[in-house]
Amino acid sequence: MADPSLEVCPDFTGDLFAAIREDLVNATGSTHQAVADRLRNVWVVDHEARVLEWNHQRDEEAQEEAEIERAQAAHEEEEHIAKEAEAEKDHLELEKKKPKMNSFNATATVGDAIAPRPSQYAIQKLNNFEYVELWYFSPEGCKEAMKMSRSMADDTFSLAKLNDQLTIRPSSAFKASRSAIPDHELSFSVFLRAKNLFLTQANAAKWPQTHLDALALFFWHLENHSIRNNSELGDLVIMHYASRVCLDWHDHLKRDKGFNIGIINETLLRSINEEIWDRVHSRTLVMSQN
């Protein structure tokens, strides 16, 4: 439909409408001018009505288009907000996973002494609450850890699962030392030094305080047990008891059947004592026969 406001009123006084005027003059007895004026008035009324209708229709269409544009703009705004929220969520998730560096006390200095550091393998064992030989916490074990430590660029890496997520760790964190020996093969003096660093590192690995207290009591009882003064093989007996009981304690903890390691089982201790003496007697007998 064309815009009626662009229309031009016909010339009803012209020759084109002469026949119509003649008929109307004859029918009404009016003059040609009066008939032409009447025709023009009728056309103007009709024209104005059609212009009003056209403008009204254009207004409705404009309102509909504006409503569609507003709805589309609102939808786009919602999508924009949703994308920004998703991006912010992703950013926060990345920030949570991103390693954090702790702050420091600007007035504090390094301590007067730095404790020896065991291997990454031993520390990883402690972090997983697993059994690890005391040798790793001995002076010899810490010296080897320092000697074998490499830069991150020189080391190879392996995948590890931590808190249900895969992480990349140096392969050295998973390798046991070929130099490691069972606890009962340590000298008693080395055993005492190693257990001190072991307890310190276990505390740093967030072992439960009840477990740390039981272990501290366990080592104290062994260090001060009367068998060390009453038997030539007392230290060896103590070492064998410690070696076996620590491993058995971890095995029971894994099965959720843990016991209080701080309580010394004198019956087991006597049994180990007899076993070691029998072993010594057997060796002595063999040597005498040869």
Rank of each mutant, 00 (worst) to 15 (best):
D23L: 11
V8A: 07
D46L: 09
H225Y: 03
A145S: 13
F198I: 00
E275W: 10
L39E: 01
I261Y: 00
F137C: 01
S149A: 14
G141L: 03
L253V: 04
K254M: 09
K83E: 04
K97H: 09
L192S: 12
P116T: 03
M146P: 05
A34H: 07
A85Y: 03
Y131I: 00
L126S: 01
P10F: 03
P99C: 03
A19C: 04
H221V: 01
L126A: 02
M148Y: 06
P182M: 05
E53F: 08
N224V: 01
S231M: 09
I264L: 05
I238G: 01
R38I: 00
W43L: 02
K161T: 13
D112W: 07
D213Q: 11
G262D: 01
A18G: 05
F174Q: 10
N265P: 02
E232H: 12
D59C: 10
N128S: 08
D37L: 11
V237H: 09
L212G: 01
L16H: 10
H47F: 03
T31E: 02
L217Q: 14
N26Q: 14
D155A: 13
R38N: 08
T167D: 08
E185A: 10
Q201A: 11
Q165W: 02
K125Q: 14
A66C: 06
N128H: 11
L24Y: 06
L6S: 11
P4V: 01
L94F: 07
A160L: 07
T13Y: 08
L24R: 12
E22R: 15
A153M: 08
R150M: 13
I276G: 03
F12G: 01
C142H: 08
I264N: 02
A153P: 08
I263Y: 10
A173I: 04
G262P: 01
Q63W: 09
L217C: 12
G29D: 00
I114M: 13
H80E: 13
F129Q: 06
G29A: 03
W43C: 02
E88I: 05
L217A: 15
W207E: 00
I181M: 12
L159I: 05
I238K: 02
N163D: 13
Q63G: 06
M146W: 07
D154A: 12
H56E: 13
